[in-house]
């Protein structure tokens, strides 16, 4: 029958029109910025630098190895290595980034920097309100703006952060066990051969 399709279409329209006022799952409008939807754990917006402990300058995990700078697809990271070394949060002297800038206007939120980082030092933030009225200076984030605590990281990506912490603790335990074994071996060697001046640490460097 001619006109059947139009009638069918109109019936569908009427059904949906009425439904849009009562159906709960269709009332999806949120009054941003007063109201906000719950953040999604996997979401990634912009990188930040993780630090341990209370002081961001002392606890920055980044050792300025520049792998992320090299691997970044749009080349939005700029790093300058420090001339001196500074003890990190466990007390080991490390090179640190004297300058670490990321350009918001260039970054494409791809997370490659996070994946290539061997030190779990750079992670993705979920904060998306990065707009600023300073078009050039304000869009370049320096390391003091990028540094965020490990607690903050746990707050936004709890599952991932717990995994990272477990992995770091395991690595640390391994290093400590190795150091301990080396010290013991050295002590044993020293006891056995008192003439040998410097005992070599046991076990080769792996990785």
């Amino acid at each position: 029958m001619l006109g059947e399709g139009i009638l069918k279409g109109l019936a569908e329209t009427a059904k949906n029109f009425a439904g849009s006022y009562v159906s709960k799952e269709r009332l999806t409008t949120v009054q941003y910025p007063e109201e906000r939807v719950a953040p999604i754990e996997a979401s990634r917006v912009f990188p930040f630098l993780v630090y341990d402990g209370g002081d961001w300058q002392a606890g920055l995990r980044c050792v300025a190895c520049q792998i992320c700078e090299k691997e970044c697809p749009p080349k939005c990271i700029y790093i300058e290595k420090s001339k001196d070394k500074k003890p990190d949060y466990v007390g080991k002297p490390q090179i640190y980034p004297a300058r670490f800038d990321i350009d918001v206007s260039v970054c494409m939120s791809c997370q490659i920097c996070v994946e290539v980082c061997p030190f779990e030092a750079i992670k993705m933030d979920t904060e998306f309100e990065l707009a600023t009225d300073d078009r050039f200076g304000g869009l370049l984030r320096s390391r003091d703006q990028l540094a965020k605590s490990n607690e903050y990281y746990h707050g936004i990506h709890p599952t991932e952060a717990a995994e990272v912490d477990a992995r770091l603790a395991e690595e640390k335990a391994k290093v400590e066990a190795k150091a301990k074994a080396a010290a013991e071996a050295a002590a044993a060697k020293a006891a056995a051969e008192p003439a040998t001046p410097a005992a070599k640490p046991a076990g080769g460097e792996s990785k």
Partner: peptide
């Protein structure tokens, strides 16, 4: 988005 972290640029 829940799986990859992005709606369209999934990577």
């Amino acid at each position: 988005e829940a799986l990859t972290g992005s709606r369209m640029m999934c990577n």
